[in-house]
């Protein structure tokens, strides 16, 4: 159990997909302008990456290594299509906001990387926890970015006004430039944080 917790939790801080591995930055900047969109994207990726790790792990002994990447892509594409149709039916507004980035989940580096690095070499249960942890790390990072960008770029959180109507929103925060600057600083914060964790575990 402790081992599974370790596999799950490493995706949240030590190997956070956005802040430490610096994967999938394009959607992180593009759709994190509001908390709702960021959360929807984070949830979608979390489901895809967990489900895909399960399916890749299940078929890991059947796949010829030479064709593994196309096989993984088909698996991811199937799951993404399911999510896309579900969102289209039940949350059409969010579906419209996410736009092309939802379909682009198929080729997210982080999902393929987890299939390649972890799920293709491990049993089903650990693979699920690995995907779930990575997806959860992505989700929390997206929420983090989304809250800050919506707060300063629009003066709201989840659509509710925080600073009142006299606040002049700083549009740069909901433009890509502000997104990149913010992610740069958060990468720095995570680096300091990780160094402290390492120092503490080293001292012990």
């Amino acid at each position: 159990m402790a081992n599974l917790w370790k596999i799950f939790s490493k995706g949240i801080i030590q190997e956070n997909p956005i802040f430490v591995l610096a994967l999938s930055l394009c959607p992180a900047v593009a759709v994190s302008t509001t908390v709702v969109n960021a959360a929807a994207m984070g949830l979608a990726v979390m489901i895809v990456i967990s489900a895909n790790n399960i399916s890749v792990s299940l078929i890991r002994k059947l796949v010829n290594p030479k064709v593994r990447v196309p096989v993984y892509i088909i698996s991811i594409a199937t799951i993404v299509t399911v999510i896309e149709l579900t969102l289209k039916a039940f949350a059409p507004l969010i579906y419209k906001d996410l736009g092309v980035y939802l379909q682009l989940v198929v080729v997210f580096a982080i999902i393929l990387a987890r299939a390649e690095v972890f799920a293709s070499k491990n049993r089903v249960i650990p693979s699920f926890f690995d995907g779930f942890g990575m997806g959860f790390g992505f989700f929390t990072a997206m929420i983090f970015i989304g809250v800050i960008r919506e707060l300063f770029g629009n003066g709201t959180i989840l659509g509710f006004s925080v600073f009142g109507s006299s606040y002049p929103p700083a549009l740069i925060m909901i433009l890509p430039a502000g997104g990149f600057i913010l992610i740069g600083y958060l990468v720095g914060v995570y680096k300091i944080w990780n160094e402290r964790i390492e120092k503490r575990s080293g001292a012990r």
Partner: peptide
């Protein structure tokens, strides 16, 4: 440049 992006009207 950041100000022009943030508050283009002002």
């Amino acid at each position: 440049a950041a100000l022009v992006l943030s508050w283009p009207v002002a």
